[in-house]
């Protein structure tokens, strides 16, 4: 058996330490070791975006990052987006626009949208669609998701 490695990282602003096997992805570590199950596995090969998280300020698919790679880095997940008493404007916009049906892709879309709006607070519809193209949704046809992100942009 390959020995587990010690990793120290910051997740949603909190210092976190864990042991993991090199073969465990960041997604597996978040879900199975840290019980942060907001990031979802839809494809496990970077083609659906359901596992999107922000790593050192950059949007990534957590299924394509090894858990050991986040040593010394910072990770933002869906669990860290809302404040205790208040949702993030993107979350509010998703609810007000009915931008989710089954909801399985929603955490990934919100992380992706957050990464976009953090960088470009005033995107066009095309920029939103281009940025979110790595996130698959099978329920909504994307119409209300795109509207929610545009609404969130104008609200902030």
């Amino acid at each position: 058996m390959v020995r587990k490695l010690h990793v120290q990282t910051a997740i949603n602003g909190e210092t976190v330490e864990f042991l993991c096997e090199p073969r465990q992805s960041l997604l597996e570590v978040l879900r199975d070791e840290l019980h942060l199950t907001g990031a979802k596995e839809g494809c496990n090969n970077g083609n659906c975006g359901a596992c999107s998280v922000i790593l050192d300020g950059r949007l990534v698919n957590s299924c394509l990052v090894l858990g050991v790679e986040i040593d010394g880095k910072s990770v933002e997940t869906i669990e860290g987006v809302a404040e205790p008493e208040k949702l993030h404007p993107i979350q509010d916009a998703f609810l007000e626009n009915a931008a989710l049906q089954c909801g399985i892709c929603t955490p990934g879309f919100i992380m992706s949208a957050k990464a976009l709006l953090d960088k470009n607070p005033n995107p066009t519809e095309h920029e939103v669609r281009y940025w979110l193209a790595g996130n698959l949704c099978r329920c909504t046809g994307y119409d209300k998701i795109v509207r929610a992100v545009l609404d969130a942009a104008s609200a902030t």
Binding site: L36, T37, G38, A39, K40, T77, I78, E79, V81, A82, L87, Q91, F94, L95, L100, G103, I104, T106, P107, I110
Partner: peptide, 11 residues
């Protein structure tokens, strides 16, 4: 809705 936009909903 809130459970589903905060990642708390248990699938």
């Amino acid at each position: 809705g809130v459970d589903k936009v905060t990642g708390r909903a248990i699938y």
